[in-house]
Write a protein that binds this DNA or RNA. Structure first.
Lengths: 159, 159
DNA sequence: CAAGATTGAGGGATCAATCTTC
DNA sequence: GAAGATTGATCCCTCAATCTTG
């Protein structure tokens, strides 16, 4: 199921915009940040990716002008990623369609109880994963399902 | 959550055996078949993969001696995949550890009610996906969760 | 032309090694 | 030595194009 959902999201995104699903995750995370700026390792943590994957992906996105890197003054090992103006344009154009398909495929099909169970199951399994792998961090909270559940369809189009 | 589960399964498999998660899916599907033999397009359908992905993956597995291809008499466009003796050895060695981690991470953490909800949610979303993409087939039933739920842990180690 | 399957190119993801700064 | 990040190799996956048989 997850495989097919992800395929559908990728398809929708690359038809309507020029973004992959990972691109979308990065841009949404950055727009949620003051200044659209984040330490690279924090972005990695927020999106649940490895350092290496994050680095490769940001390199590709920088090449396309969606983000830029900035040196960090206080810790000269580190770096920031910043969303560009073009990045903002693209994500703003892509968001409504993306949100719509997530609703169409999942949120609108399930009732309150199902969504509660899903939320709980997710937390349980993430806890199990954390135990399993020592201390795998399991932070992941882009669209808090439980909070916008009762908003009427017409008013709901934020990422 | 799915991302982390899949990463954990891949990690476990490549530590304990020499298989990736997709490798495992192919081998389990084949062993469930009389003669360990299946038409390539049926394997694609059973595993929920595209033709192209299936073809590429089988090519890699054939190169490693896990499966072989056979011509089809009745329809000379088609072909069969067959699991090799070595393929059987490998999957039999890998299965118990794989089953164990799935239990540890998911099945043993959830109660009957949660698993029922999950099963229903999965069907609902797959139905939505089928609508969305025209007629996406959504067959996927390797380990029917609902049927082995009450077997005591010690007796449960079939893929 | 449609169905079964393969191929090649290109993005995506992981691992191990590396480089720099703390 | 450890933390922040990058690199290169390699496998995985998708898309579009192709080849062959029905």
């Amino acid at each position: 199921m997850h495989m097919q959902i992800d395929a559908a999201l990728n398809r929708q995104l690359s038809e309507d915009s020029d973004l992959s699903h990972p691109d979308y995750v990065v841009l949404v995370t950055l727009t949620a940040q003051p200044g659209g700026r984040l330490r690279i390792s924090e972005l990695a943590q927020a999106s649940g990716w490895e350092k290496s994957r994050t680095s490769h992906h940001l390199a590709r996105m920088a090449r396309r002008g969606l983000v830029e890197k900035e040196a960090c003054e206080s810790d000269r090992r580190g770096a920031f990623v910043v969303i560009t103006a073009r990045g903002r344009e693209v994500i703003e154009a892509a968001a409504p369609g993306h949100v719509a398909i997530v609703r169409r495929l999942v949120v609108d099909r399930l009732d309150t109880h199902d969504l509660d169970v899903l939320a709980r199951v997710t937390e349980t399994v993430l806890a199990a994963l954390a135990e399993e792998t020592g201390t795998a961090l399991a932070i992941q909270a882009h669209t808090p399902v439980r909070e916008d559940r009762h908003v009427p369809p017409s008013d709901r189009n934020t990422p």
